[in-house]
Design a protein around this nucleic acid. Structure first.
Lengths: 100, 100
DNA sequence: GCCAAATATTTATATATTTGCATCTGTTAA
DNA sequence: TTAACAGATGCAAATATATAAATATTTGGC
């Protein structure tokens, strides 16, 4: 038996965890490259952003773990993509709010 | 003289800081109450959410410092409100993404 | 000026994140 | 079955954040 408050607390925490996952400069940069349903491999992202392979994989793992991204193994590579297209809204909003 | 990369890095950090400010269960709850241009005082928020006054003020300070909220002193009270209406998009998106 | 109400700041402790490096695990192709 | 490539994981040091309690500041009314 779960109460409304608990449900709400649970959802708030889930939402906070998703946002916390996104709230990092590198991870926002990753999401920018995945807008519009694009799929990229770990190597592509690590080359695009010029960061270590292990660091890239770590960031992608966080985003996947918190429900922001999905991944799919394709041979030697693993591609990552947005779990919900609607997440682009957050990136859009950030672009607009950091224009000043 | 500032380079494109530096500008981009700066904006990414600014965006990350805004999101980091929002990415906390209590602070998301606060924003939910401020959607639609509403203005609430510190006391109203601390009573609505049932958290300590000092804690409330602390959370509001973080949101203001990172550019999410604005505040306005009105007599003994201080009201807080969203700096950009568009920030509701983030709350909307979170509601939709945490429905499962 | 002085008090009380409404906010804000400070401090300390506990906890969580970030990052690079090294290492380990899968997978393909020879 | 082994070499080489792609990705994931574990660890440690530096850094950042959270939380609660105590204290400070600002404002209006007397």
């Amino acid at each position: 038996m779960i109460t409304i408050q608990e449900l709400d607390t649970y959802r708030l925490e889930m939402a906070a965890n998703m946002l916390k996952a996104i709230a990092h400069p590198m991870r926002i940069a990753i999401l920018k490259h995945l807008e519009g349903g694009k799929k990229l491999t770990v190597t592509e992202i690590h080359e695009l952003l010029g960061i270590e392979q292990a660091t890239t994989s770590h960031h992608l793992g966080i985003l996947k773990d918190k429900g922001v991204l999905c991944s799919r193994r394709e041979g030697k590579n693993t591609s990552y993509y947005l779990k919900h297209d609607i997440l682009s809204q957050i990136i859009d909003c950030l672009q607009k709010c950091t224009c000043e």
